[in-house]
Simulated scan of single mutants.
Amino acid sequence: MEVARLKSGALLQNSSISEGRMRFIGGLLLIDSGGTLQVVGRFDGTGNFEWSGPWKFDSGDGEIAGNVKLTGDFDLTGQMDVTGGIEILGPGKIKVGNVIIENGRITAGTGAAQVTIDGETGKVTAGDMTMDPTVSGGALTFANGAQVFTDDDTVQLYKGSSVVQVTDSYARLQNGGDVVEINDNGIRMSPGAIPTTPGTGLPVPGVLIQAPNGYVRKSDGT
Score class of each variant (00 low, 15 high):
Gly41Arg: 01
Pro205Gln: 12
Ile88Glu: 08
Lys69Trp: 00
Val166Asn: 11
Ile209His: 04
Gly176Lys: 05
Phe43Arg: 14
Tyr215Gln: 15
Lys93Phe: 01
Ile64Gly: 00
Gly92Ala: 02
Glu120Gln: 14
Val148Ile: 15
Ser33Trp: 04
Gly104Ser: 02
Ser169Ile: 04
Thr141Glu: 07
Pro195Met: 13
Phe74Asn: 07
Ser169Pro: 03
Gly104Asn: 11
Ile101Cys: 03
Gly45Val: 04
Asp118Lys: 11
Gln174His: 02
Val207His: 04
Lys7Ser: 11
Val148Leu: 10
Val99Cys: 04
Gly109Cys: 00
Val68Asn: 00
Tyr215Met: 11
Ile187Gly: 02
Gly97Ser: 03
Ala193Gly: 01
Gly90Thr: 02
Gly137Ile: 03
Gly72Cys: 08
Val3Asp: 05
Gly27Tyr: 05
Thr116Ala: 11
Pro54Tyr: 08
Arg217Pro: 07
Phe24Pro: 01
Asn98Asp: 14
Asn103Phe: 01
Gln165Pro: 00
Ile86Gln: 13
Gly138Val: 04
Ser190Val: 10
Tyr170Ile: 04
Ile64His: 11
Asn213Ser: 12
Gly92Trp: 05
Thr197Gly: 07
Gly90Glu: 00
Val82Leu: 15
Leu11Thr: 14
Thr134Pro: 09
Leu173Asp: 00
Phe149Glu: 11
Thr154Tyr: 10
Thr130Tyr: 02
Gly41Lys: 05
Gln13Val: 07
Leu89Lys: 00
Gly104Lys: 00
Val163Leu: 15
Asp61Lys: 12
Arg21Phe: 09
Asn144Gly: 12
Met129Thr: 15
Asp73Tyr: 09
Ile31Tyr: 02
Thr36Phe: 04
